[in-house]
């Protein structure tokens, strides 16, 4: 029984909770979530982005045309039967855009997850141990940064046959170094904090300090970076696919769809504008989400109260 209830039971009049000054305890996560939810552009973007994701992954199971099946109608403008029209060989553009969005999202998300996972652990270990370990690990990361992404991606993908996970692995294999730099600089300052000293005094192992104390506290910059990597990932993949070095037919990606439609901008504009609009929508919403997350994790950069 709390004090208030006890007083109430005793017949003493007490002010209701909302009438008195009360301090509600909030955890760090709750604070961050509250700040994010109040960021209007970020919240709208999150909803739109999630709708696109759901549509791309669940839609193909409900739609009556498959992305790889010919339909009897070719070069048709958008209609009820074919909401995004059809192309010259009779493929249903709605099914193809759904499939393309799915592939592009899968690649972008795998790039973000893969490079974040490798980069975060790499940077945390380098920052935690410092000295010779740090020097060697960061020189390797610097070396990876000097490798030209496009050249490597072009060379490797011309051989790998364009399966979606290969493209993601190649791109992630060159972008993790950025993440490792960011995480290292965060960990370098975190490792001097008292809670790390306390953990060490309690006898925590190095691995425990890195994975239970340092990485969770560096989560802010890690998540913000991962979000931005999804946006750059989708732009890189679509550009590669556009240059015919990415996803190969019969599978499709948003970049490949734009490439196939570039000669038909005048005659079948729906084939060109719709996949392009989807790339823009995905990259735009992710950038806004990233912006909202940055503000939420870093209260110093908060907007003025309105």
């Amino acid at each position: 029984m709390t004090d208030t209830e006890a007083a109430g039971a005793a017949g003493i009049e007490v002010p209701r909770a909302d009438q008195e000054f009360s301090v509600k305890q909030r955890t760090q996560t709750q604070l961050i979530l509250r700040r994010f939810v109040r960021h209007r552009a970020a919240m709208i973007s999150l909803v739109v982005f999630l709708l696109i994701v759901l549509w791309a992954f669940i839609g193909p199971h409900l739609w009556h045309y498959s992305y790889g099946k010919f339909t009897p109608d070719n070069s048709q403008a958008p209609s009820w039967k074919h909401p995004f029209g059809t192309n010259a060989s009779g493929y249903d553009a709605y099914a193809q855009v759904m499939r393309g969005t799915q592939t592009s999202l899968k690649i972008a998300i795998l790039i973000a997850l893969g490079s974040t996972l490798v980069g975060a652990v790499w940077g945390a270990i380098a920052g935690f141990y410092r000295g010779i370990v740090d020097a060697i690990m960061m020189r390797i990361a610097d070396l990876v940064l000097t490798l030209p992404l496009l050249a490597i991606a072009l060379v490797i993908s011309s051989r790998s046959g364009g399966s979606w996970y290969w493209i993601a692995v190649v791109i992630a294999g060159l972008t993790w170094a950025y993440v490792s730099r960011v995480v290292r600089s965060t960990v370098l300052s975190l490792r001097e904090k008292e809670f790390v000293e306390a953990a060490r005094a309690l006898g925590a192992s190095d691995a425990r300090i890195i994975f239970r104390h340092l990485l969770p506290n560096a989560l802010g910059p890690i998540i913000v970076n991962a979000t931005i990597l999804v946006a750059t990932g989708i732009l890189t993949e679509t550009a590669l696919s556009f240059l015919s070095f990415g996803v190969q037919p019969p599978d499709t990606s948003l970049g490949l769809l734009v490439a196939q439609a570039q000669t038909a901008v005048d005659t079948r504009p729906w084939l060109f504008y719709i996949p392009g609009a989807f790339i823009i929508a995905i990259a735009l919403t992710i950038n806004f989400i990233g912006d909202g997350l940055r503000d939420a994790f870093d209260p110093r950069q908060q907007r003025v109260r309105q």
């Binding site: 734009v258 823009i280 950038n287």
Partner: peptide
Amino acid sequence: GFLFLAMPVFWFAVLLKQ
């Protein structure tokens, strides 16, 4: 600024060409 950051170069270039 956000819009151009999100816009794929190839899409924009094809549009300009047209």
